[in-house]
Design a protein around this nucleic acid. Sequence first.
DNA 1: TTGTAAGCGTTATCAA
DNA 2: TTGATAACGCTTACAA
Lengths: 341, 341
Amino acid sequence: MVRGMAATLKDIAEKVGLHPATVSRALNPRTAHLVSPTSVAKVRKAASALDYVPNPMAAGLRTSRSHTIGVVIPDLTNPLFPGMVRGIQDTLTNAGYTPLLVNTDNDPLAEKSVVASLSARRVDGFILATARREHPLLAELAPKFPLVLINRVSENVQVSSVATDEQNGIRLAVEHLRLLGHTEIAHLAGPAWSSTGYERRQAFTRAMRANGLTPARKPSTVESWSITAATATALSLLEGNNQTTALVCANDQLALGAIEAAKKLGKRCPRDISVVGYNDMPFMDLVDPPLTSVRVPQHDIGAEAARLLLSLIAEEGPQPIRQVRLTPELIIRSSTAPPSN
Amino acid sequence: MVRGMAATLKDIAEKVGLHPATVSRALNPRTAHLVSPTSVAKVRKAASALDYVPNPMAAGLRTSRSHTIGVVIPDLTNPLFPGMVRGIQDTLTNAGYTPLLVNTDNDPLAEKSVVASLSARRVDGFILATARREHPLLAELAPKFPLVLINRVSENVQVSSVATDEQNGIRLAVEHLRLLGHTEIAHLAGPAWSSTGYERRQAFTRAMRANGLTPARKPSTVESWSITAATATALSLLEGNNQTTALVCANDQLALGAIEAAKKLGKRCPRDISVVGYNDMPFMDLVDPPLTSVRVPQHDIGAEAARLLLSLIAEEGPQPIRQVRLTPELIIRSSTAPPSN
DNA sequence: TTGTAAGCGTTATCAA
DNA sequence: TTGATAACGCTTACAA
């Protein structure tokens, strides 16, 4: 078949001597029962003989559903996201939906523009993995679209979400360090504008208290989720500080930066300083030293978010709010050890 | 504005007292010159007042162009791809196109089905990053769609492509090792079904000859692009083999597997064996030891492929074939050193 | 410069 | 059980 010449309902109708409307009904599982079995069979045969594929633009124009989902993430090259995106893709594709993936680079302006272009494409819903705590778009989007947040929850607006239990994850890290014998534990926190940065910082304070510990010092906040920024902040945290023996980091990039800083200061990880990361991105088992990290189930988060969104889309009437929390797991490797002094 | 109530051309037409067709012309940059400047101004104002966004399904149905591009990759969670995909996304989005991303997991059946679903969506073209040498779909797709291959070229079918110069990349690796003093150099080759595996293997033989060297032994072929498979193959390559002092690996995963195998055998990298990777994926500077690798410009490949595809789409008449080769670069780190004996 | 009218391929309503 | 018809929102000859 030549491009631009795909078979249509009309072609099938002519071939089998039925009306296009009947053919449409026969081919649509939801309406096929309205058509006589004989006709359905004939239509199906003709359809496959003609290599018929329904035109989603025509169907969408008529039904105003695109079977398309906007997936908004900060940055695909951040190794945290590919796993989640695949979870989303696998689930949506199975259900006959197509994800439209965009990046915001955590820039609110860029986010506004990509979300606008997704609305223009008439997506049927959104999965948002953007991490800013301030999120004006959310209030704007939530009433208009089925919506699921991943890897974070909303503080103000009532929206559905799939995230890990940060309290629990950070608690696992703190407990692990306490059990190793650490008491002087500090937190390398993520950016204050970031929802995970904020949540994990609070979780740290709480987990320390729950373990009967006092933080070695006020958490140091890294200005962006990057290794280089983390190195700089960790440098000033660790320099001339022989008290702190362990560091709970708000994600793996920060942990890598902390290890880098320790190396620069002539400290050895884990001998002089234990470091725990968060997310357990790919290859964290191969860095030097292999990183102890709180694993978040990336594929599962994505898959669960997609399932949840599809159920919201299927929902009649007002959108229910569902908040799913998945359980993180501590992966113990070689960046943590008992304190040496 | 409430969901499902977006403004249409007709709404604007009523507001400004013109016909919808005129409004359409005024809003379309390609036809705006046919409309009086006064009308254009009025229409533009009304359009933005009503938050008008064109409905791509309606436009697409009429023009049979979806402004959508199918992007087919093996697996998004392979760190080689996110950079390329972002290059594609950034370029396509700027041009008003939306990429539709799918994974094949290198399974020909899965590939067939995802490509079918993309055709069903009426994509305007394809970017294919699938790596199998046997590729029946290619011959089928090429006559029907504008098409660009990335990270590989086609052996049989004439299609456009953007890839790095594998000859050159492998040559950089071999020369680097020779300059360090290695003469007993072996190749850990990628799967034979894979086009890069095949190309790099050939390139290795040629580069050795060009450097006046004889390969330490016949290349060992790894059955899949995975670290574990590579570990197994490298184990049997290195075990009881004290002759080989350097390994050129067909990609970074294989290099990581080779290092793992060396460790298991009590060999130290780079002291006992030098290892070179290919691709220079993210974090290869942080593994142990930091990996010397041939860097391929991931973002550039994606961006260039998108630009090329857009130019093919704009082309009238038969599709020209353009083969772009980008230059790789050797990143020297600590997995290579002079031979110690 | 603008209006008219037809049609892209589908689905939903109504009638037979 | 099937057919006729209209409509979704847009573009594009063609006519005025």
